[in-house]
Each structure stands twice: as C-alpha cells, then as structure tokens.
Deep mutational scan, measured.
Amino acid sequence: MFYPNSPQTSPQLTQIPYGQQYAMMQRQIQQPYHPFATTEPQARLYPYHYQGPIQQEQGGFITQQSTAASPQYVQMRVTPVDQSIMSGYPNQTANGSSSSSFNYNIHPQQQQQQQQQQQQLRHHAMPVGSVPLQDDRYRKQLIVNYLAPDVTSTDLHELFSRFGELDGARIIYDKQTNMSKGYGFVYFCHAEDAKEAVERMSGYEFHGKWLKVGYSTNPLNIVPSNSSPYVHAGSRGAAG
C-alpha cells in the first residue's frame, strides 16, 4: 500500500523548493479562506456584503464582478436614472436638479381664491374633541361614552347635575331594538360647569363602566337656548 506522503511516492527534499517541504498533501497545500485577509477597505468593513468592485458596462447597466450573493443577503441591482424623465418638472436647472418651490404660472386672482378656499376649509374642519370658538353652545354640550346598558337618562342627569344647572341629558337608544347604544349627551347651562365635568368625570366608574367624557361637536345635538329642557323620564321611549 502506498500513501500520498510515503517515501516511495514523495520526491527528495532537495528537489522541493524551500517553504513547501512540509506541504505535501493536497489539504495542506490548499490555503484556508480568510474573509478579512484583503487589501480593499470595503471588504474589511463589510465582509458579507462586499463582492468586489463595481464596473460600468456598455448599455448603462451596473453589474458586479463577483458571483451571486448568499441567500441570506439580498443584493440590489441599481440602474442609472434617465434624465429625460425629470425634464417635465418646473424650475429645473441645466444640471438636472430642481428647486423646492414650484411655479405653475397661476393667475394671481386664482391663487388668492385657492388660498381663501383653504382658509375656509381649515375654519370649518374641526378635529374630534375640539371646541370651536365662534359658538358658545359647543362648550356646553358633552358626550358621555361607555355607558352601561342599564343607565337611563334620569341617572345621567343626576350624575352630572352636581356640577351645575343642566339644560338636559339623554341616552341614545336603538330604534329597532330599543336598547341603549352605550353613549349619551349632557347639556349644561354654563360653559364653566361643562369644563369642570369634563375634567372630573373622564375615567369615572359608573355602573361598572369607566366613562369617557368630552365635548360634543355635532351641531345636530345642540340644544337651542330658547327651547324647553328635555324630559328626564326613566322610560326608554321618552328618553330616546
């Protein structure tokens, strides 16, 4: 039997160049792979992502010199942007860049009308829970959420009447099932009393439920100042 490094198959040491006398086997001759043993700084910083320098080929596509990437890492192929796409944008300079302001050559009167329309939209648009300043009635009506099913309009009136005089209180019921929808409205005579009720009743436990109280901004629920107070009856038909 002959071994790869046996004296019968191995040459004389004098015939082997210096430095390879003890590297006779194939696994010894093959050098191990060192990912950080390279002179390129990109490979030292990113050993798993770097795959060699990027070269520009004919046709405008950018390719990489090395083989496919590892399945664990996804390499994105980048193509140059066609400058003709950006030619339609206004205020574009000769080098292809555009300024931040756009001039669509709008007539001054049209621009003024658009600004007025935007101001009107901001004036009428009102986020949930906010209180408008032009109508004091919005500051007097509250919406009470997360009410228990057994709470009546009379219970709601008695709960909030300790903060001040009320114009009314009612629970909203479903017309088909005649069941409470879980929320109601309270109408105060003074805005200061309503503000105190919002601050003190939010998070209050009532009939096993934690109440959420806020201003009601729905104009359909506003009680006119010259109208008669609501009837605080315990029956659902009268309260709904």
Rank of each mutant, 00 (worst) to 15 (best):
Q26W: 15
G208P: 02
Q15I: 15
Q116Y: 14
Q134G: 05
T217Y: 01
Y73P: 05
S130I: 05
N178P: 03
G208E: 02
S153K: 03
L142H: 02
Q42N: 09
L156R: 09
Y204N: 02
Q111L: 12
A238N: 11
P7F: 15
F163S: 03
A239N: 01
E165W: 13
F163G: 08
S70K: 11
Q31C: 14
S153P: 03
P11G: 06
D193I: 01
Q112N: 10
Y173A: 06
Q51L: 13
H124C: 08
H124E: 02
A238L: 14
Y73Q: 02
I222C: 06
M179H: 06
R139A: 05
Y146M: 00
S202E: 02
H157Y: 08
Q109K: 11
R77W: 15
Q21T: 07
G96L: 11
A125S: 12
N5D: 12
Q75S: 05
S180L: 03
V78Q: 04
D167E: 03
Y104K: 03
G208W: 01
M201E: 01
T93L: 08
Y3T: 05
R200K: 05
R77K: 13
A238V: 09
Y183K: 00
Q64V: 15
S202H: 02
Q117R: 10
I29Q: 05
D136V: 05
S101N: 09
Y33R: 04
Q92R: 09
V81P: 03
Q92P: 07
Q75R: 05
Y187M: 00
M201L: 05
T154N: 12
D193A: 10
G234K: 09
P53A: 12
Q118E: 11
S180A: 13
V198K: 08
G168H: 02
H190F: 05
R122T: 08
F160N: 01
S180N: 03
A233R: 11
I172Q: 00
Q118K: 05
Q112Y: 14
R44W: 15
A37F: 15
Q109I: 15
Q111M: 06
N5M: 09
R236I: 05
K195P: 10
Y138R: 06
L156C: 04
Q26Y: 14
V78K: 04
F206T: 01
F185W: 00
N103R: 10
Q176V: 09
G19L: 10
G88C: 06
R139V: 09
V151R: 02
V151Q: 03
Q28D: 15
G214R: 01
G52Y: 14
H190A: 04
E199L: 08
L142P: 02
D135N: 05
G203R: 01
G164Q: 03
V78Y: 14
V186I: 06
G129R: 05
Q109P: 07
P32R: 03
T93F: 12
G208N: 14
Q118I: 13
T154E: 08
